[in-house]
């Protein structure tokens, strides 16, 4: 494992911790898209089908369990927790899951590394992760007052993706036969989706102003 990959995983972990902190301590999920969180839960459930069949490392299994556990518990909190669910504004979070899930599923059936259930599900999870942030980005645009934790959460998610690109470049030059078009192209698309957000995030940081995305 290289430093970019580890930094990417740690950034991803930090994003989840920031979101859990908001939910647990502040008891609020204001500005958080349940749609995006549900898509992430689906992403991890379909990608980590190998958790009990292929052992890679203790690190790998632990991280998979953390991402599975945290994504499902976040969804549970937003939907069912007495106090947290009150801060969820359903009327703003209107993105339709199906617009993302169905095209990703069709693409996974057509473009995959092998036409088996596990491989199609893996490709599906890669495609879905690439676009799963869209409901969250739409919600951010509609939110006039983006609180710091929400801004940091999305920033950390974007940073995680950018670090994964550096990881792939590093692996490409240091490992033999390391070529993975499915993850590379989807990962690039995923990172580009954050470009606009990054721009406004850094602007607000530079000018010491509250983060606000133009409608």
């Amino acid at each position: 494992m290289n430093i970019f990959r580890l930094a990417g995983d740690m950034t991803h972990l930090a994003s989840v911790l920031v979101l859990l902190l908001k939910i647990h301590t502040i008891k609020s999920c204001a500005g958080i898209s349940l749609k995006t969180q549900e898509l992430y839960a689906l992403v991890f459930a379909t990608r980590y089908l190998d958790i009990f069949t292929d052992f890679i490392s203790l690190y790998n299994t632990t991280m998979k369990l953390i991402f599975l556990g945290s994504s499902f518990s976040i969804v549970w909190y937003i939907r069912n927790h007495k106090i947290v669910s009150r801060s969820y504004d359903k009327s703003q979070d209107t993105f339709r899951h199906y617009f993302l899930i169905i095209p990703c599923l069709l693409l996974a059936l057509l473009v995959n590394e092998k036409f088996t259930f596990k491989e199609v599900m893996w490709a599906f999870s890669i495609y879905l992760e690439a676009v799963a942030i869209l409901p969250q980005l739409v919600l951010l645009q509609r939110t006039r007052n983006i609180d710091n934790l929400t801004g940091q959460y999305v920033f950390l998610l974007g940073a995680y993706r950018a670090l994964y690109i550096l990881n792939w470049i590093y692996r490409y030059f240091t490992e033999t036969h390391y070529v993975h078009w499915i993850t590379w192209v989807s990962g690039l698309v995923q990172t580009l989706l954050y470009a606009d957000f990054f721009y406004y995030y850094f602007e607000s940081w530079k000018n010491n102003k509250k983060l606000q995305l133009p409608a």
Binding site: N60, F67, Y164, N167, E175, T183
Partner: peptide, 10 residues
């Protein structure tokens, strides 16, 4: 481990 395996990524 297989060096060309992308499935070791999360």
């Amino acid at each position: 481990t297989d060096p060309s395996n992308a499935k070791d990524e999360l």
